[in-house]
Nucleic acid binder design. Structure first.
Lengths: 188, 188
DNA sequence: TCCCGGAACCTAGAGGCTCTAGGCTATCAC
DNA sequence: GTGATAGCCTAGAGCCTCTAGGTTCCGGGA
């Protein structure tokens, strides 16, 4: 009978890969079951429903990205840290567009509390500590930094920059320069 | 028999309203037909398919937002213009979350060429002209500005900022101050 | 060794959404 | 009036979600 040997972990992992291949919007329980050579209904003993699947992919992605960012940050400070952190974000989105999309959609309170709010903004704060901003300016800067990195990543992924010949890599590099300059010269 | 009197315009307008109410993801042809008191199939003489519906909503939203931004920009310059433009964006996203979401997803080349690439980034350039940046810095600044405004709007809408007590309105205001300062002191 | 409980997987089926093919009916121009 | 056209319909196929209720594999205890 050759069982597929499904577990929640394997299912979610495969779902993440599928999302990267076909897009997060096209991540369906049916397609996932097909990939395992299994009937749709079989997956529902591992998943609550389709929304549950998407949330689990989001949690996986948040944890993965946090790990990468943490590694990138290790031993760095100042602008080095800023650049490493931002690149970890952007590179992850390029490598795993489906997972990155998953992270954005499903920020329900419980999910967000699980991983993002904790590790991600904590790392951002760690970077900003090098710029010595008093509160509440540091919080504002955290939000600005997140916004810009996420916004750039999202717009670039959606193809929003391809109408202009300017290289997006160069603009990205310049954007990080500008953010560094801004943080070092934060308006009072 | 009391016909519903459907036209493409009315259908798309209603779709935009529906998207704002139930979320862009939940915008379906079926739900729209239900709202008109009409069978699903009837809408397919006005629409090519479901994707076509979403794209039309995106085009509508892009045009509406461009109009608003243009009005907000009229007669303003410098920081006033920057703030007015950014607020037009953010306010629109708050008022019309479904339409704002529509704008992001569907940036296929043809659609984008229709409205966004033209009017939106042209207005952004008009604002930046006040800061006298040479090329390619102006292009980089356009991308940074778009990224930050969009990123902040998206993260705020997704609830990404509600884990911290700091008022999002105050952070937004400070973010615009910071952008203004940055543009006025762009690193070479 | 046997059996037994739980986990893994199944079939069957209801209900929703998408979209096509083909037919009827207001309504407006002439 | 009489066509022509646009607006709307029924019927139905295909895919996706999810529930209810089986059946089969597998490890651990008597």
């Amino acid at each position: 009978m050759a069982r597929a040997g499904l577990t929640v972990e394997r299912v979610v992992q495969a779902a993440a890969e599928l999302a990267d291949e076909v897009g997060f919007d096209n991540l369906t329980v049916s397609a996932l079951a097909r990939r395992f050579g299994v009937k749709d209904a079989s997956l529902y003993s591992h998943l609550k429903n389709a929304q549950d699947l998407r949330e689990r992919v989001a949690v996986l992605a948040l944890a993965e990205l946090a790990d990468r960012a943490a590694s990138a940050l290790a031993g760095r400070a100042g602008k080095d840290a800023l650049v490493a952190f931002a690149n970890a974000y952007r590179d992850y989105a390029k490598e795993h567009p489906g997972r990155y999309a998953a992270m954005q959609v499903d920020l329900t309170p419980e999910i967000a509390a699980t991983s993002r709010a904790d590790r991600h903004s904590e790392m951002t704060r760690a970077i900003l500590r090098g710029y010595h901003l008093p509160e509440p300016d540091e919080t504002d800067a955290v939000r600005l930094l997140h916004s810009t990195v996420h916004g750039y990543t999202a717009l670039e992924a959606a193809g929003g920059f391809r109408h202009h010949p300017r290289d997006t890599e160069a603009s990205w590099s310049k954007t990080l320069d500008a953010l560094h300059a801004l943080l070092g010269n934060w308006p009072s």
